[in-house]
Design a protein around this nucleic acid. Structure first.
Lengths: 199, 199
DNA sequence: AGACAAATCGATCAAATGATCGATTCATGG
DNA sequence: CCATGAATCGATCATTTGATCGATTTGTCT
């Protein structure tokens, strides 16, 4: 039961539908199996119409990257705040990522696929790099705040620690149904690894 | 200046040349851009000969996965030993991975690419899963040993911690020339995160 | 040397794939 | 209601790509 085929959708809306279908297919078949025909079919339009809205496949990948980045960033908690408890902010940030894996599994999967194609697409690589910098930056700030608050180890280096945390989170992408079993145990380990020792 | 084209190479040797060329191309173009013609050209044989040695592209991916797994495992240090210092063993393990990124960048890149294709190839997925279990298992054992030795935190959970370490290491794959700048700073952070607090 | 198996190649095929073009349909403002 | 532009479609193209087949060359064993 698909959404009733709806003719004559405005450009922006149609492009959004295309991006969503492309993300889903990217998560299912992988980049190597992404076909413009499949995307068009899932949207319910012809290949010609798809080409009309997105000139080429390269442009499509750029477009997917941008919309995926925006969609993911929109799911994140408020910006890190030095006045709030850093541990709570860290947990909220991780919780948001966890929720995204459950409710929007296409997002992380799309990132994973696009990263493999980034080597060869200048625009793509830029979008991906920008996103990763933004995302890791949030964790770096939270960790810095927490260290200043005395919650985390004084010898904790925020940037390396942020890379450790984000890398660990990303590893939970592309897993089967039971793939998230270890998510919170692993987060607990991260937390213990960051917290200042209590003498 | 290629290695002088050499006709009539025995099956096993030819298949090894094919696997190596495929790994290199996989690292360069990505899975989506992997073409049997390109592989054959790099090896210096015709597509027919390639097909003679490896039946299909699916079989090729399986074969690549197996040889890559073996090549990577061969680079690792001796098995974890409860009698030796766990921190030294951990560092040696990480050093081996670091060296592999420098001297055999095709290995990690190939794994990253194949993982994207694993969803859809039963045999591939099995090989990849087996490898990841083996690799993470080494770290789990080292961490357990170190905890028993009193070197690591008593509340450290070996399996989650091992996932954290391996995930962080993997994140250093597919980077540019300066991509390894933060490798050792990040490892130092991992080490600080694992070590038992000194009162 | 002769025979048999192994390895290689050139030619070719059928399907897949991204892209283009012209015609057609729908929406919307005047 | 009609004129203009936006959106959609069907047909078609040129290339790419994985795969097959038969013929040929090379190694090896006796």
């Amino acid at each position: 039961m698909e959404t009733q085929t709806q003719h004559y959708v405005r450009r922006d809306e149609r492009r959004e539908m295309i991006a969503q279908a492309a993300r889903d297919l990217l998560a299912e078949k992988g980049l190597a199996g992404l076909r413009t025909r499949d995307i068009a079919a899932r949207v319910g339009i012809s290949v010609s119409t798809l080409q009309f809205h997105v000139r080429s496949k390269a442009a499509l990948l750029d477009f997917i990257a941008e919309t995926t980045r925006d969609a993911f960033l929109a799911l994140l908690p408020p910006e890190p705040d030095p006045a709030k408890d850093a541990l709570l902010q860290l947990r909220a940030e991780v919780q948001a990522f966890h929720d995204s894996l459950i409710h929007r599994p296409d997002l992380a999967a799309t990132f994973a696929q696009l990263e493999q194609a980034a080597g060869g697409q200048a625009g793509l690589a830029a979008t991906m790099a920008e996103f990763k910098a933004l995302w890791a930056g949030r964790y770096t700030r939270i960790l810095t705040i927490g260290r200043d608050q005395g919650l985390f180890r004084p010898d904790m280096a925020p940037l390396p620690a942020a890379m450790m945390v984000t890398a660990t989170l990303v590893a939970f992408q592309n897993r089967g149904p039971d793939g998230l079993t270890l998510f919170w145990p692993v987060y607990d380990e991260i937390q213990r690894a960051l917290l200042a020792p209590t003498p």
